[in-house]
């Protein structure tokens, strides 16, 4: 078995118009910037994107939105230091937003990967985000029903990976990545380092390869914060 491939453009080539795509990361931490930029090059439209945020500046998810690739965003916090890409289109009615509390977003994705169609949570009860959702009492306390989230594709970032798709993560860049790996039909991973099968201590593996379909090595990946501080835009505007 070898799930690793060399070409990042091949890795995202099958993502077609209208797909639902989970994108890992919390802000720039754990965001698969190179995979996102490869997807921008491929250019599918009318995507539903699931991410904690809505992009920052003019790279990564913000750049995808600027390229008019995203018709719906499911996220918890569509604000950032520079949220204009999303804000302008949202206020113009060009992009739909499903706002989900952060813990509920994580659990909906986890449930999607775990074969749990719905669950009950106290989060959001009595708020406008509970409108239209079934409610139920357990042991005298009120809860709301939340449905799971699945996706056609997940684009995620990991620290080390091997040809079986086993993954480790780097510090808080773990965040949504292991959950999204489980919840997508096809999970595509960019790893900072591709290592031979058997080299990662099984005790250290966070995402077992069964959840992963494709691994591409991107050494020294770019970081959203650094790109934004350098005022980078993707794709670069050529004049």
């Amino acid at each position: 078995m070898n799930k690793s491939i060399d070409s990042i453009s091949d890795a995202v080539a099958k993502i077609e118009d209208g797909s639902t795509v989970m994108i890992g990361g919390f802000g720039g931490s754990g965001a698969p910037i190179e995979l996102i930029h490869a997807l921008i090059d491929a250019g599918p439209k009318n995507l539903t994107v699931i991410n904690n945020n809505a992009g920052n500046g003019h790279v990564g998810l913000a750049a995808m939105i600027e390229q008019e690739m995203v018709s719906k965003l499911i996220c918890s916090f569509p604000r950032s230091a520079d949220p204009r890409a999303f804000t302008d289109r949202y206020l113009a009615g060009k992009i739909e937003l499903e706002l989900v509390p952060q813990g509920t977003l994580a659990e909906r994705i986890r449930a999607g990967g775990a074969g749990i169609p719905a669950f009950y949570t106290p989060t959001g009860f009595g708020t406008e985000l509970a409108e239209g959702k079934p409610q139920k009492e357990f042991d005298g306390k009120p809860y709301i029903e939340e449905r799971c989230l699945k996706a056609d594709y997940a684009l995620i970032k990991a620290e080390q990976g091997d040809g079986f798709g086993n993954l480790t993560y780097r510090m808080a860049a773990r965040n949504f990545n292991p959950l999204m790996a489980m919840a997508a039909e096809t999970t595509i991973v960019q790893v900072n380092q591709l290592v031979p099968v058997g080299q990662i201590d099984p005790e250290r593996i966070v995402t077992p390869g069964i959840f992963v379909d494709c691994v591409v090595e991107i050494q020294n990946p770019q970081q959203e914060e650094d790109l934004n501080r350098a005022d980078v835009r993707y794709p670069e505007v050529t004049t």
């Binding site: 916090f77 604000r79 949220p83 937003l97 509390p101 813990g103 106290p122 989060t123 708020t127 985000l129």
Partner: peptide, 15 residues
């Protein structure tokens, strides 16, 4: 109005 954003606030008040 504007862009609504909730983050983890609704989760943090429970539990």
């Amino acid at each position: 109005g504007g862009v609504p954003a909730v983050g983890g606030a609704m989760d943090l008040v429970h539990g």
